[in-house]
Design a protein around this nucleic acid. Structure first.
Lengths: 217, 217
DNA sequence: TAGATTGTTAATCGATTAACAATC
DNA sequence: TAGATTGTTAATCGATTAACAATC
C-alpha cells in the first residue's frame, strides 16, 4: 500500500478521457486502444497508458481497454460514482448560464444551491433553484452536504466569497473571477480563467509555429 | 537575432501578471518587486524574473519593476497594444454571458460579431451586437479584420464551427465546448474547459489537510 | 502461433527553483 | 557605502516519450 503521488497533470486529463469514452460508449464501441485514444485526444499513447496505470491495470494486452469498464473505473477514481453537491455564488450572466447548464448532472456533480450578495435578488428562480442570501450559505452547505463551490462574482468580491466558502466547510472551489485566490492548504482551488486564456491567445496571433521572431539583441 | 522559443507556460502567466499590475497601477503604486508579485500571485519570484527576462530587461537592480512601464511592456508582448477583433459563435446562455462581459475591452480584445446557426435567432440584439447567420461569417471576418474566434456551441457542433473559423481565416480559437478540437498547425486553440476543471476537482475532495500533496513515507 | 497492445522501466525533454554576481 | 533586487546560470525537479518484455 504505497501512497503514490499522482500529478495534477494526470488528474486533469482524466475528465478528458472520460468524456471521450462516454462518446464511444454511446456509439456502442466496446474496445479502444491507447493508440486510438491518443489520436482522438491529441495525446501520446504512452502517456495515456501511463496515466491509467497509476490507478490499476485496466487494459488487456493485445486487446486494449474495455470502454464501459474504463468509464466505470475513471468515475471511481474521480469520485464521480456518488453525487457531489455544488453551491454557486454570483447570479450575474455567467452564474445564471452555469446554472442552466446541466452537463455535469450526468457526471454526478450538481448545483443544488445558488447565492447572491445582492439581497434584491433573493427569491429569484434560476433553473428551479431559488437564489438565497449569503447569510444562509453555511447552513445550506451543512444541510445539503455541499462540498464544492463555484465563484462567479466580480474579481473584487471573489476572495471574500472564497473565505466564506472555506468557513462554511467547502473543500473545493472553481473560481471564474479573474483574480488569484488564497485559501488554507486543505482547500483546493481550480481556476476557470478564460479571460487569461483569451489574452494569451493574442500572443500567438502573428507568429508562425509558436516561434517568436527575434525581437531582442 | 535568435528566435527564442517561449514556452506556453510562460505566455499563460503574462496575463496574470498584467492583471495584477493593473490593480497596482489603479492604487497608484509605482514600483513592485518580484518578491511582492510572487507573494500575491502565489508564484516563485525567480520564475517571475525569468519569465520577464525572456522579453527584455524591464527591472532595475536594487529597485524592482516600474508598474506602468511593465504594464506597457507586457501589453506589447501580448500584442494588446492594438485592438484585436473577436467573433463569437453560439448565442446560448454562455455565449450571451460572454457578450455581456466587457472586461476584455479594456485589454483591447473586443467581440465585434456574433453568429448562430439557428436562423430564428437572426437579428436578435445582444449587447448592441446583431446575431448573424453562419453564412455571413467569412465576409464579416474579412471586413471587420477578425483574428480570434470564440466557440460556445454544443460539443457536437464545435468541430464544424472550428472548421468554418479556419476556412474564414481565423488564426486563434477559444473553445468552450467540452471536446478536443483539431485544426491546421497554423491555428492556435485554447480551451476554456470548465467542466473538466470541475470534474477534476472532485478527485481531491476527500483528502484530508491537503496531505495528499508531497509527503510520503 | 502471429499480431497486437498493454504495463513499466529507462531516456529525454522541459520547467521550476536556488544561488549569486552585477549593480542600482 | 550598505541594502536591495535584478538578470542569469546552474541545479533540481517533474513530466513526457521511447522502447520493449510480457502476454492476451
Amino acid at each position: 500500500m504505497k501512497p503514490i503521488k499522482i500529478s495534477e497533470a494526470v488528474v486533469r486529463r482524466l475528465p478528458i478521457y472520460l468524456r471521450f469514452l462516454n462518446e464511444l460508449s454511446l456509439s456502442n464501441i466496446q474496445t479502444v486502444s491507447s493508440q486510438e485514444l491518443g489520436e482522438k485526444l491529441d495525446l501520446n499513447p504512452a502517456q495515456i497508458r501511463k496515466d491509467l496505470a497509476y490507478f490499476g491495470e485496466f487494459g488487456r494486452k493485445g486487446v486494449g481497454y474495455n470502454v464501459d469498464y474504463l468509464i466505470e473505473k475513471i468515475r471511481q477514481i474521480l469520485k464521480l460514482d456518488k453525487t457531489m453537491n455544488v453551491a454557486l455564488v454570483g447570479t450575474g450572466n455567467l452564474g445564471r448560464a452555469l446554472c442552466n447548464y446541466n452537463t455535469y448532472i450526468k457526471d454526478n456533480m450538481k448545483i443544488v444551491a445558488v447565492f447572491d450578495a445582492d439581497t434584491s435578488k433573493k427569491g429569484t428562480l434560476i433553473n428551479r433553484l431559488t437564489v438565497q442570501p449569503m447569510q444562509e450559505l453555511t447552513d445550506s452547505v451543512k444541510q445539503l452536504d455541499i462540498s464544492v463551490g463555484i465563484i462567479t462574482v466580480p474579481a473584487a468580491e471573489a476572495q471574500n466569497v472564497a473565505d466564506q466558502f472555506v468557513a462554511a466547510g467547502i473543500r473545493g472551489i472553481l473560481n471564474f473571477a479573474p483574480v488569484v485566490l488564497k485559501a488554507s492548504p486543505g482547500v483546493r482551488i481550480h481556476n476557470a480563467d478564460f479571460t487569461a486564456e483569451l489574452l494569451s491567445l493574442a500572443y500567438y496571433m502573428d507568429t508562425i509555429n509558436g516561434t517568436k521572431e527575434g525581437n531582442e539583441a
